[in-house]
């Protein structure tokens, strides 16, 4: 069965979507990813969509769902590498991807995650 690979990169999970996903594959990824988050006690997920030339409403929504679920599981999600044409089309399509943070590339995305993680920890410490 085809699957999108999920890589563990240090304390984060990295998903690089290289193929044009059909809908079921997208849903499988959603399930796999939430499972991995729980299993690895990860607090950050990077989804690299730089290879995608088309992101339609379904895949866009899926990305949004992953972000929401991760947040519930105490993990932050950053979508990185979105092509400009895709970004424009998403906006035109009326899909705003609320709650999905984006970064230009993987490196920036990791920085973003680390930063937010520290902030959260500090916040948690103050709370504790």
């Amino acid at each position: 069965m085809e699957r999108i690979p999920i890589l563990k990169m240090g304390e984060f999970l990295l998903v690089t979507i290289q193929v044009d996903m059909h809908d079921r594959l997208a849903l499988t990824l959603q399930d796999d990813l939430t499972e991995m988050i729980v299993k690895n006690r990860t607090h950050g997920v990077l989804i690299d969509i730089s290879a995608l030339e088309v992101v339609d409403s379904f895949i866009g929504r899926m990305l949004g769902n992953i972000a929401s679920m991760s947040r519930v599981l105490d993990a932050a999600t950053v979508v990185v590498g979105m092509q400009p044409a895709v970004a424009i089309t998403l906006v035109e399509l009326g899909l705003s991807l609320p709650g999905v943070r984006t970064a230009l590339n993987v490196e920036k995305g990791m920085e973003l995650l680390r930063g937010s993680l520290t902030a959260t920890n500090g916040h948690a410490r103050r709370q504790g």
Binding site: V54, D56, S57, F58, A85, T89
Partner: peptide
């Protein structure tokens, strides 16, 4: 152009789905 390619592909994707 590239942007329109994406638009067309996305629209077809929506309706085909």
């Amino acid at each position: 152009e590239s942007q329109d390619q994406t638009r067309i592909a996305t629209a077809v994707s929506e309706i085909a789905r």
